[in-house]
């Protein structure tokens, strides 16, 4: 079994693996084994133990690790069945080849890193300083102009969304509007809608219109209009008694 003493480097290694082969290579090296001498059964156990520990720590484990785990377990199972010996040897050879190839890749990747670190020690006359990294997504090709327009539209939209909407308190209430209507109809039987809205702002007109509709529904006003957008004539159908006025006002509060 694996040594899980405090000296074990689990903590340090958890984030550090770049895939199942990396983990496997690490386990082989820990055993101070040559890759070609890999012993499948113990490695399978250690590998599974590693995954279990990672799960216990609630670490996200990529599916790739489980694929390798099942391959290893299949190999281990085959190794125990005499008539599967050939198939097992084949799988083991494949794994050894894969690990050896991977070991080369790791070395080559490290070499590339070294070359890169050295190459960036010299600067060109100009280069897109930080933009190169931060604006990676804004990479355009042939359809550059469309993308540009799209991005521009998005910026505008965002600005619009960010712009605060000012809500000014209205200097009048529904009660005020109703009182005005009652005042008008105290003196006369009918009036034109436009005479009430003259020089009034839109909010007031809306309030007035809503009150008129309410009075029509309730039966105390009659409204006529001959054409779309033509003058609206308001006619009183009864007398607005004090009691009735209070009743109507209460309805809007």
């Amino acid at each position: 079994m694996m040594d899980f003493s405090p000296a074990f480097d689990l903590e340090l290694q958890l984030e550090g693996f770049n895939g199942p082969l990396d983990l496997l290579l690490h386990l082989v090296r820990k055993q101070k084994m040559a890759i070609s001498d890999i012993a499948i059964a113990p490695i399978t156990e250690q590998y599974a133990e590693y995954l279990k520990r990672m799960e216990e720590l609630n670490l996200d484990i990529a599916g790739d690790y489980f694929v390798m785990a099942s391959t290893l377990m299949l190999m281990k199972a085959k190794s125990l069945i005499p008539r599967e010996k050939e198939s097992f040897e084949e799988m083991r050879e494949d794994l050894i080849f894969q690990l050896e190839e991977y070991e080369k890749i790791v070395a080559q990747a490290a070499e590339l890193q070294k070359l890169h670190r050295e190459a960036v020690r010299s600067f060109p006359r100009v280069y897109k300083e930080k933009i190169e990294k931060a604006e990676r997504e804004f990479k355009v090709g042939e359809n550059a102009i469309f993308l540009l327009v799209e991005h521009y539209a998005r910026v505008i939209e965002r600005r619009k969304a960010l712009r605060p909407i000012l809500i000014k308190p209205k200097p009048y209430t529904m009660k005020d509007v109703l009182s005005l209507l009652f005042g008008v109809f105290r003196k006369r039987k009918s009036t034109r809608f436009s005479s009430l809205t003259h020089q009034r702002e839109r909010g007031f007109v809306v309030y007035l219109f809503v009150s008129v509709l309410e009075l029509v529904r309730e039966g105390s006003l009659k409204v006529t209009q001959t054409d779309t957008f033509s003058e609206i004539i308001l006619q009183r159908r009864g007398v607005f008694t004090e009691e009735k006025q209070q009743q109507l006002i209460a309805r809007f509060e």
């Binding site: 770049n18 890749i105 990747a109 590339l112 890169h116 600067f123 930080k130 190169e132």
Partner: peptide
């Protein structure tokens, strides 16, 4: 210059690039 032309690539990306 504050920054050089270093690529910020993960180990996995360097392996892929090496391949």
């Amino acid at each position: 210059k504050d920054t050089d032309r270093s690529l910020s690539l993960s180990q996995a990306a360097f392996e892929t690039l090496a391949i």
